[in-house]
């Protein structure tokens, strides 16, 4: 499937026009809210994963931590996707030819599938029923995946 026409269209769309024309809107509503959402998303990932690894909050049930953090993960994900789409629309054609953009999109897709198809269904139940090594493996995988998403995302700006 040829995606370039879609990226060309995105840049001429209303969102693309706003981001391209008004640098202040791009930097505040786009980049800054994207980073604030990263704080919440990354925080919710780390709170859960560090708890599963037994690094923090050992005296709080991991089920409580995972459930509460997941609520904020979903909210942050909505904001991070919305601001990400806004930013990408403004520079869509440049993104199309940027390797790190595609690396990030791949990592993000893996991250979303990992959370909603593996991590969340697994952590919904009683954690005592799950092998401890498996919980730790999921936590390490989760940290690595979301680190990759954030790092490749930051590197888009450098490349």
């Amino acid at each position: 499937m040829e995606l370039l026409p879609f990226f060309e269209w995105a840049e001429t769309s209303f969102l693309g026009y706003i981001g391209k024309t008004y640098g202040g809107v791009y930097a505040t509503f786009g980049q800054s809210i994207h980073l604030m959402s990263l704080a919440v998303l990354g925080g919710s990932v780390l709170v859960t994963d560090l708890r599963l690894l037994g690094v923090i909050m050992k005296d709080v049930p991991s089920e409580v931590v995972a459930n509460e953090a997941h609520k904020w993960f979903r909210i942050a994900l909505v904001f991070i996707l919305a601001t990400g789409i806004f930013m990408a629309a403004a520079v869509a054609q440049r993104m199309y030819y940027n390797d790190f953009f595609w690396a990030k999109m791949s990592a993000l897709l893996v991250g979303i599938i990992f959370v909603f198809a593996i991590k969340r269904p697994m952590l919904k139940g009683n954690h005592a029923d799950i092998q401890p090594w498996l919980l730790k493996l999921v936590a390490v995988a989760s940290i690595m995946i979301w680190f990759s998403v954030a790092a490749t995302g930051r590197w888009i700006g450098f490349s």
């Binding site: 704080a39 925080g43 990932v45 780390l46 904020w72 790092a151």
Partner: peptide, 12 residues
């Protein structure tokens, strides 16, 4: 990236 650790914990 350390925003995730520092501000992530602060937010919670």
């Amino acid at each position: 990236l350390t925003i995730m650790l520092c501000l992530g914990m602060l937010v919670f």
